[in-house]
Design a protein around this nucleic acid. Sequence first.
RNA 1: GGUCCCGUGGUGAAGUGGAGUUCACGCCGGCCUGUCAAGCCGGAGGUCGCGGGUUCGAACCCCGUCGGGACCGCCA
Length: 575
Amino acid sequence: MRTHQCGELRVDQIGQTVTLAGWVATRREHGSSLAFVDVRDHTGVTQCVVDNTVDVRAEYVVRVTGTVAARPAENVNDKLPTGGVEIQDCVVEVLNVAEAPPFPISERTDTVAEGTRLQYRFLDIRRERMQRNLRVRAAVNSAIRTAMEDQGFVEVETPMLVPSTPEGAREFIVPSRQQPGSFYALPQSPQLFKQLLMVAGIDRYYQLARCLRDEDLRADRQYEFMQLDAEMSFVDQDDVHTAIGNAVIAAARAAGHETGEIVKITWHEAMDKYGIDKPDLRFGMELTELTDVFSATEFKAFAGASCIKGINATGKAEEFGRNKLDGLTDTAKRLGAKGLVWMKVAADGTLESPVAKFLTESELAALAERLAASPGDLLLIVADEWITTCEALGQLRNDLGRPPVFEGPYRYLWVVDFPMFVGVDDVTGRPKPGHHPFTQPHPDDVDRLETDPMSVRSQAYDLVLNGWELGSGSIRIHQPELQARIFELLGISAEEQQRKFGFFLNPFRYGAPPHGGFAFGIDRLVAILAGEENIREVIAFPKTQSGADPMTNAPTPVADKQLNELGIRVLPRVD
RNA sequence: GGUCCCGUGGUGAAGUGGAGUUCACGCCGGCCUGUCAAGCCGGAGGUCGCGGGUUCGAACCCCGUCGGGACCGCCA
């Protein structure tokens, strides 16, 4: 059908007779006997010189046979890889005509409403950006598979129709025809199956798994998403980190990015230095300890505070007028801080702030020194509980300093030693698990499970890339006695354990090996590696924020016959 | 469940109470032998998302609703 692709021809092929096939990108007419037609496929465009009587229009599907010729020196187009050549003496065959597309198939109009792009996704994907993103995605998937298999992981597929479990994300449910009134759930993740595969002696499992969660959609969340899901037997945390690290480094390389060594920090350090459990390491502006500077202060907003920290937004003083400063204060308050102190560093080095008059000369001097203040800098200070201070400044740090996603470098980060429990359940008063209830506590902290549960660290860990949480994992509990202690702590009775997790826990009585695993989101990883802010840009057929597909019109009502067969009656909407 | 932003020819934008809704691209027709976002001339194309209200008068103001987006809640 064709001898070359449209982005392939160079001066090396001059004189050859070639056949190209593709879509008409543009047509430029020059009188009755000359026109230039650019033919496009996913590799690029090639200029074909044709007789102007040939009736081809934008997006017609054509096959062109002709001779590769050098362009006259003054007509070489340096902007195109194929710009040194053109096809002459063309025979143009129209393989299919096309209506005028609703929007240009071009990169220079990247402003088309996303709803329109999704309605005509088959045209949107013809564009270079989408072609590139989907091919990056394919390369990443391939690199991950290779990396996992090279490390002895076995791909095992798990069911899409699974039992509903009450914990975690809201599930999509699927009615059973054979047992009307009973339902399957679509898997939020293969979590339970992969641990049973360890009991089953698979040793190292992986899967590029489709996961489904019926939670509200966001720029980084779709109903359906892909995870690299993995589980390993007879390992500790470091073994898991090494295996997954190899996969994500290979994935980045497949997308053309070198990442270097993966840094590892504790959750406490992440919160203390960056104020967030998924820090973006591409920029500094770290949280600086100031509590000791104000240990004897008379300024009452600082006097009683257990933790005072600050950040230096270098050179931002001028940019932030009263309005924008109020916005920063609102951000801090939204995160629970009692307030925000700001100071601008004047040209002579003095600190200008509504509260400067409440601080002593030596306090101001120490503050300036600690934050390395220079003229033009904006200093932001929060005084509160440790966690509140950190979280407020962490958000401000991100808001003020975070580079756009397409700016490298690419810095993976393991965050380890997460707290075992986060907060207390409003109803039961019991601690709430930070990860899930099958997570192994840190061995040094097990003794404090009952006496001081909130101080117990878990063997759970997150993988972060440039401020995006890619995924999480843990070493699991494989000893029934320890599992029983955790359930006891969470206030889950033996009866409830059996009802909710019986099919999962009972197999552990038959010889469960020590094991742990990880899962990370492919969509997020590919988005970052492709330089996209939104995972919809790396998904061929994504859904809108309301969960609809403008191309297929899903979701739709179904026929009464179908509902009857399933024993389902649709009730009128109640608001 | 909530907060905020956006809906104007096919596409993207301008118009924020008063004359015929303006422009660019695209589309259709014509001209044009070296363009490459070709150029020139002409033409067609609109329920200003939808419904209600205020007003002498609404694309514009108000209420509701639908659709799209960002975020909070939610995502163990």
